[in-house]
Design a protein around this nucleic acid. Structure first.
Length: 895
DNA sequence: GTTCTCACG
DNA sequence: ACGTACGTGAGAACT
C-alpha cells in the first residue's frame, strides 16, 4: 500500500464541476452535473495518483464559526444556486456508497480540515495530494504536499500542480507567504478585502522585500511605491484581517484516523445503484461486469422441465384466490394471491414462460417436448379466465399470445410506473426494481451486452432464463408497491380505469393497421421527385455552384456569406436557416422561395412518400405503434411510423392523405373534438364568461375578440379574430408576452395589452393559471382533471429560463393532460362498443383530438352516432364537448 | 450520438 | 437582464 494520500476539497470541487459541466438532469429531474463532474475529476486524479488513502472534506458552517466576527466579509457570500445545493447531499451519498471517508465538522471549512490532515500526514512522512479549486490552499504547498487545481477546459480536465517551487515560480512568494499575499491583494472570489490599491504585482514586490505583512508595516516608511505605502499605512488593520481570513488552520481537532481513509474499492454495488439512478452511463463500465448482479435473487429463479413439476406449478396457481378489485385490495392490504408473468419469446414464438407467485421463487418453464408451448398457453389462458391476478412489465407485447381482454385482471407495472412519473425515458424491469423496490438488478444491456437475444437464448441459457425471470419476479413484487403508491397519489383510478384498458384498445389499433394505396404513394413520390430536380437546378444556378441544400451549414454559408443576405441569425453551430428566418428573406432573392419549396418537397418525399412506403406490410396496411409511456402530459405518441403528423396544413402535403384508404366495402369516419383544450380550460377555470361563450356554441375566437377588443360581435374583423385566436392558443401554452408578440408580429408591449385585456375578460382563467403555478411550486407537480400527475422539477430552478419553462408547463400540462384523459376514455368506450355490438368497424388512429374509424358501409350512421356519443360523453364538463364527424373514401376526404 | 429542421395536435 | 410558446417523431447532416 502506497503511503500517499489524496485529499479533496469537496465544496470547492463540486462547485467547479457545477460551473464546468453543462446542466444535466436524470429522467427524474434531479440535477446531476456537479456530481458527475466531481466524480470524473476524482477518478481522473485517483487513476494518476495510485494513492493508498483518500479523504474528502466538506464545509460545515456553524453559528460559532470563527469568521462570524467579520460578517461583512465572509457572511455576505452569495448563496449557491439551489441546483447545486441539492447535489451536495447526493454527492455525499455517492461517496459513501463508494466507501470513501468524508470529513466535516461544525464550524470548520473544508480547507481547515484538509490543512490539518495534510499537515499531520506530511509530518508522518507521507506524500499528500491536495485537490481544490481554491488557491488559498497554495499556502500549504511543500515538497511533500502537492496542491492540485483542476481546470475544466473544453474537451476535458487539466490539472495545475504546485509544490513549493511552482508556487514561487508563479507567484514570486513562498507558500507560507501566500497568506501575506492575500492579506495585501485580497481575493474577490473569497470576499477577502485586501489593501485597496495593492494588486498582485505590488504585493509580490513588497513581500520580496519584507517577507510578511507585519514586517512591511514595521518598516512602513521604506515600503514602495508611495501609493501602496500610504494605503497600507491607512489600511493595515484590513491587511491583518485579510491575512487572518486567508489563513488555513492546520490544528483542527479532528477524530480522524488514517485507517478509515484507506483507499476503498470504490466501484461497489451500492455505488452502481446510485450511478444508475443518476444515469451516469459513461461510468457504468468502471464496474466489474457482474457487480450489479443480484446473485441472491437469481438463486430464486428455478428452471422447470418436467411435465409433473409444470402441472404442480399451474395447480398451485389455480388454487390462488380470484382477484378482487385492485382499488379495494389496496385499502384492505394487497393479497399475495397474484402471479408475476413473463413470456420468453423469440421472433414471435414463445419459447418459455416465467411465473412468480411467492417472493421465494420464480419458476422458469422452458418449452420442450413434454412441456409444450400449447400446454403453457392453455394453462396461462386458464389462469386469466379464472380471474387470478396477474402482473406483467409490458403487457401490450404479451397480448399476441394470450387471450386477455380489458376486463382481465392483469396489471402492467411499466405503465403503472409511467403513471407515477411520466418523465422517465424507460420503464423496464430494472427501472421498476430500482425506483419502487429499491433493489438493483442487471438491465438487459448488462445481461446481454451487444449479443443478440437469439444468440443469448442459444448460447447462454442461464443468462436468458434470468432475463425472463427478472421480469416476472419484479412484476410480482412491484404490484403491491406501485398500486399502493398510485392510491396514495390519487392516481389509482386513472391507472385501473383508463390506462390499463387503453392497452387493449391500442393493441387492437396496431393489429388492425391502416390501409395504404401503394401505387398512389409511389406516384406521389415520383411527382415530388420531378419538381425537386427542377428546383435543385434553379437553386444551383442562383447560387452559382452546386452544394447540399439540405445541409444547414452549407446553405448558411451560401446565403449569408456568398450572397450576403441580411438578418443572419446564429444558432450554436452556425447560421440559422429555419423557415421563419428564410421567410423574412423572401423579398431579397427569388432563390429563397425555391429553397423553401425545396425544403418542403424533400421533407414530403423523404419522411412521407419514401418513409411511409417502408412500413407497408404484406396486407397493404401500415401497422404503426402507439406508445403509452412516452409523453410528459399523458398523450399517446405514435412511431414506426408516426401517424400523428401526416401533413394537412399545406395543400400539397395534405394530398398524401389520399393514399390512406379504407378496406373495400368500408369508408372512413373521422371525428374531431372542437377546441377541446380551450373547453377544458373553461371547465377547469370555471370562468363564467368563458363557459357562457361556449354554451352559445359559437365561434370562440370571435367571441373572445369581441370581448377583448370591446367590439360588437358582428363587427369583429378577421384580424381581430385571428389575434384573439393566437391569444387563446397562447393561454393554453402558458402565455408570455414576448412569444405572443413574436407570433403576432407585434411588440411585447402590445402583446402585454392583449393578455391583460384577455385576463380582464376572463378573470377566473388568470386566477386558475396562477393557482396552477403556485400549486406546482408547492407540491412539485400539477395534476389533470383525472389526477394524472406531471412533476415539474424546473419550478424550483434558480435559473430564470428554466423556472419560466416550469411555469408554462404548470399552466399547460393540466389542460393538455385532461384533454388526453378525455380522448383516452372515448377511445376505450368506442372500441368496446364496436366490439360489444359485434360491428365490423374498427378504430384505426388517434391524433390527440381526433379518432379515425374504418367503418363498414352498413354501419355508417350507427358508428357515427357511437363516435359522437362516446366522445362527447367521455367527460361531463361545465361546457359541452363538441365533436364533428366527417366521412370520406380516403383520409383526405374525411377531414 | 447530437443538431437542425419540419411534420402534426 | 435573462430569452421562450405546450406536446411529440423522423430524416439528414455532421461530429
Amino acid at each position: 500500500m502506497s503511503d500517499k494520500i489524496v485529499l479533496i476539497d469537496g465544496n470547492s470541487i463540486i462547485n467547479r464541476a457545477f460551473y464546468g459541466v453543462p446542466d444535466l438532469t436524470n429522467s427524474e429531474g434531479i440535477h446531476t452535473n456537479a456530481i458527475y463532474g466531481f466524480i470524473n475529476i476524482m477518478l481522473k486524479i485517483l487513476e494518476e495518483e495510485q494513492a493508498g488513502y483518500l479523504t474528502v472534506a466538506f464545509d460545515m458552517k456553524h453559528p460559532t464559526f470563527r469568521h462570524i466576527k467579520y460578517p461583512e466579509y465572509k457572511g455576505t457570500r452569495k448563496g449557491m444556486p439551489d441546483e447545486l445545493r441539492e447535489q451536495i447531499p447526493l454527492l455525499k451519498e455517492v461517496l459513501h456508497a463508494m466507501g470513501i471517508r468524508t470529513v466535516e465538522k461544525a464550524g470548520y471549512e473544508a480547507d481547515d480540515i484538509l490543512g490539518t490532515i495534510a499537515t499531520r500526514c506530511s509530518e508522518q512522512g507521507m506524500k499528500v495530494s491536495l485537490v481544490s479549486g481554491d488557491r488559498d490552499l497554495l499556502q500549504l504547498a511543500s515538497d511533500t504536499i502537492l496542491i492540485r487545481i483542476p481546470k475544466t477546459k473544453r474537451g476535458g480536465t487539466e490539472i495545475e500542480n504546485y509544490n513549493t517551487a511552482e508556487v514561487v515560480e508563479k507567484y514570486q512568494v513562498t507558500p507560507a507567504q501566500i497568506i501575506d499575499l492575500k492579506g495585501l491583494m485580497g481575493d474577490a472570489s473569497d470576499n477577502i478585502p485586501g489593501v485597496p490599491g495593492i494588486g498582485e504585482k505590488t504585493a509580490a514586490k513588497i513581500l520580496s522585500a519584507f517577507e510578511t505583512v507585519e514586517n512591511a508595516y514595521a518598516h512602513i516608511d521604506e515600503v514602495m511605491p508611495n501609493k501602496a505605502r500610504e494605503s497600507l499605512r491607512e489600511h493595515y488593520d484590513l491587511a491583518v484581517l485579510s491575512k487572518d481570513l486567508a489563513t488555513i488552520k492546520v490544528d483542527c481537532e479532528l477524530e480522524y484516523t488514517l485507517e478509515e481513509a484507506k483507499m476503498p474499492s470504490l466501484f461497489t454495488p451500492e455505488a452502481f445503484a446510485l450511478f444508475k439512478r443518476f444515469e451516469f452511463k459513461s461510468l457504468y463500465n468502471k464496474f466489474e461486469g457482474d457487480v450489479s448482479r443480484n446473485d441472491k435473487l437469481e438463486e430464486k429463479f428455478i428452471e422447470v422441465t418436467s411435465k409433473e413439476e409444470a402441472e404442480k406449478i399451474f395447480q398451485s396457481i389455480l388454487a390462488l384466490k380470484e382477484a378482487r378489485d385492485l382499488k379495494e385490495l389496496v385499502t384492505d392490504g394487497i393479497s399475495t394471491d397474484r402471479v408475476g408473468l413473463m413470456f420468453a419469446c423469440l421472433e414471435g414464438t414463445i419459447v418459455g414462460v416465467a411465473v412468480t407467485y411467492s417472493e421465494d421463487t420464480c419458476y422458469y418453464l422452458s418449452a420442450n417436448e413434454v412441456v409444450s408451448v400449447e400446454y403453457i398457453l392453455e394453462q396461462v389462458n386458464t389462469i386469466i379466465e379464472e380471474n387470478i391476478m396477474l402482473s406483467a412489465v409490458s403487457l401490450k407485447e404479451m397480448l399476441p399470445y394470450i387471450q386477455a381482454t380489458s376486463t382481465s385482471k392483469i396489471y402492467d407495472m411499466g405503465l403503472a410506473s409511467y403513471v407515477m412519473n411520466p418523465l422517465k425515458d424507460t420503464y423496464h424491469y430494472d427501472d421498476i426494481a430500482r425506483d419502487y423496490l429499491e433493489i438493483t438488478v442487471p438491465s438487459r444491456e448488462e445481461l446481454f451486452g451487444k449479443t443478440k437475444e437469439k444468440e443469448v437464448f442459444e448460447n447462454q441459457k442461464e443468462v436468458y432464463k434470468n432475463f425472463i425471470c427478472y421480469h416476472s419476479y419484479i412484476a410480482y413484487l412491484a404490484l403491491e408497491k406501485l398500486s399502493t403508491q398510485l392510491y396514495e397519489a390519487n392516481s389509482l383510478e386513472l391507472f385501473v380505469d383508463i390506462e390499463m384498458p387503453l392497452i387493449y384498445t391500442l393493441y387492437d389499433m396496431e393489429c388492425r393497421g391502416i390501409r395504404v394505396n401503394k401505387e398512389a404513394l409511389k406516384e406521389y413520390g415520383d411527382q415530388l421527385e420531378v419538381r425537386i430536380k427542377e428546383l435543385e437546378k434553379k437553386i444551383y444556378e442562383h447560387a452559382g455552384e452546386e452544394f447540399n441544400i439540405n445541409s444547414p451549414k452549407q446553405l448558411g454559408i451560401i446565403l449569408f456569406e456568398k450572397l450576403h443576405m441580411p438578418f443572419a441569425k446564429k444558432t450554436k453551430t452556425g447560421y440559422s436557416t429555419s423557415a421563419d428566418v428564410l421567410e423574412k428573406l423572401r423579398s431579397e432573392d427569388p432563390v429563397i422561395d425555391e429553397i423553401l419549396e425545396y425544403r418542403q418537397l424533400t421533407k414530403l418525399k423523404s419522411t412521407y412518400a419514401d418513409g411511409l412506403a417502408t412500413y407497408i406490410a404484406e396486407d397493404n396496411r401500415i401497422h404503426g405503434k402507439f406508445n403509452q409511456t412516452i409523453t410528459a402530459t399523458g398523450r399517446i405518441s405514435s412511431t414506426e411510423p408516426n401517424l400523428q403528423n401526416i401533413p394537412i396544413r399545406m395543400e400539397l402535403g395534405r394530398q398524401i392523405r389520399k393514399v390512406f384508404i379504407p378496406e373495400d366495402g368500408y369508408v372512413f369516419l373521422d371525428a374531431d373534438y372542437s377546441q377541446i383544450e380551450l373547453r377544458v380550460l373553461a371547465h377547469m377555470s370555471d370562468d363564467e364568461r368563458l363557459i357562457e361563450a361556449y354554451k352559445q356554441e359559437q365561434d370562440i375566437h370571435k367571441i373572445t375578440a369581441s370581448q377583448v377588443f370591446h367590439t360588437p360581435l358582428n363587427e369583429v374583423t378577421n384580424a381581430q379574430r385571428s389575434n384573439a385566436k393566437a391569444v387563446n392558443f397562447g393561454i393554453v401554452y402558458g402565455i408570455s408576452s414576448f412569444s405572443l408578440g413574436q407570433d403576432l408580429n407585434i411588440t411585447k408591449k402590445e402583446a402585454d395589452v392583449y393578455i391583460k385585456k384577455y385576463f380582464e375578460t376572463y378573470p377566473r382563467v388568470k386566477e386558475f393559471l396562477d393557482n396552477l403555478v403556485e400549486e406546482g411550486k408547492k407540491n412539485g407537480y400539477v395534476t389533470s382533471l383525472f389526477n394524472r400527475r406531471r412533476p415539474i422539477p424546473e419550478l424550483s430552478s434558480s435559473n430564470f429560463m428554466q423556472r419560466s419553462f416550469g411555469e408554462r408547463v404548470a399552466m399547460n400540462s393540466p389542460i393538455q393532460g385532461t384533454a388526453a384523459d378525455i380522448i383516452k376514455i372515448a377511445m376505450i368506450r368506442t372500441n368496446q362498443k364496436l366490439k360489444d355490438l359485434k360491428l365490423k368497424s374498427r378504430l384505426l388512429l388517434q391524433i390527440h383530438d381526433e379518432l379515425l374509424i374504418e367503418t363498414h358501409k352498413d354501419e355508417i350512421e350507427q358508428v357515427a352516432n357511437i363516435l359522437k356519443d362516446e366522445m362527447q360523453g367521455a367527460a361531463t364538463l361545465h361546457v359541452p364537448l363538441e365533436v364533428e364527424v366527417k366521412q370520406g373514401n380516403n383520409w383526405y376526404e374525411a377531414k
